[in-house]
């Protein structure tokens, strides 16, 4: 383990620097609530279609049902993911990942690092992939996936997605038992930033949310997304789909959704996700898949040099 323990923001900066050196753009977090980094348009939308894409970013991920009022040392209403997506997936992506751990001071020979099968699926977004959870001394610190289907469209070329659980990994690196004891940066602790939000969001999600209003909001967001899709306004439509998804998660946390209804809501979101994925590819095609051209030009340029 490193001599001086890495704080969270150093950790993030090191990861950004590392992945930038592997060709990733460093993107800002996307500003609509979502349950996972995968749902950022920088992953979901960019996964479909033939264009290459390489990006990394921190994504705050809200999972209302996991809220524990800030009392559980490891479960959070909102945790942070460090997301790396590269399309097409580089041949040595596993090796890159292991190198990125070294950058964080985790030397594989001093630990037990394992790739354990975990095929990822997000039925509400029509997504499926094949891959692993990565174990560091028995702890799942990352999710590693080769996307096969996104928005019910085949992902081709295949995109690799690596999701680091920032709090998990940081707890390991800083050797703390509670995420609230983590140092975020410059001496400020995780608890100083997130303890109250955790409590308040849990209180809201489990006790104070208004089911009727949430149900109305879901319908409203869905109708808006549909209307925008019919006008080919892909990105605002996608924002409203994210809002549908988050609203559903709030309803679910409240226990307001029965098993049967659940399937119904999930299929409504999935339909929208499929449509937006299709529209995104169509719109990019109208523009001649600009990133595909870029890549070709870059390659041609290199060959001419």
């Amino acid at each position: 383990m490193a001599e001086k323990k890495l704080n969270i923001q150093d950790m993030i900066m090191k990861l950004e620097k590392f992945w930038s050196s592997k060709g990733c753009m460093i993107m800002p977090s996307y500003d609509v609530e979502k349950g996972a980094g995968t749902m950022s348009p920088y992953t979901f939308l960019r996964a479909v279609g033939p264009e290459p894409w390489a990006a990394c970013y921190v994504e705050p991920s809200r999972r209302p049902a996991d809220g524990r009022y800030g009392k559980n040392p490891n479960r959070l209403y909102q945790h942070h993911q460090f997301q790396v997506v590269i399309k097409p997936a580089p041949e040595d992506i596993q090796q890159y990942y292991l190198d990125s751990l070294r950058v964080l001071g985790i030397e594989p020979l001093e630990h037990d690092i394992r790739f354990v099968e975990d095929n990822w699926e997000n039925p509400s977004m029509g997504c499926a992939g094949v891959g692993w959870e990565v174990w560091l001394d028995g702890m799942e610190v990352s999710q590693f996936t080769y996307f096969q289907v996104v928005g019910e469209l085949d992902v081709k070329p295949t995109m690799s997605e690596i999701t680091y659980g920032i709090e998990r990994l940081a707890s390991y690196i800083q050797d703390v038992n509670s995420v609230f004891d983590l140092v975020w940066g410059n001496g400020v602790l995780y608890r100083d930033i997130f303890k109250e939000p955790e409590y308040e969001h849990s209180k809201y999600a489990f006790e104070e949310s208004n089911q009727d209003n949430l149900l109305k909001l879901f319908d409203l967001y869905e109708a808006t997304a549909k209307r925008l899709l019919s006008q080919n306004l892909v990105h605002p439509a996608y924002d409203y789909i994210l809002k549908c998804s988050h609203t559903f998660n709030l309803l679910d946390a409240r226990g307001a959704v029965s098993v049967t209804e659940r399937a119904g809501y999930l299929s409504r979101i999935r339909d929208l996700a499929h449509q937006v994925a299709v529209s995104f590819v169509e719109e990019r095609e109208k523009r001649g898949f600009p990133l595909l051209k870029n890549a070709k030009n870059k390659k041609a340029g290199l060959e001419n040099d």
């Binding site: 383990m1 630990h111 037990d112 560091l136 001394d137 702890m139």
Partner: peptide, 9 residues
Amino acid sequence: NVISGNEKV
């Protein structure tokens, strides 16, 4: 290292 990591998990 491996033992203490696993215990913690």
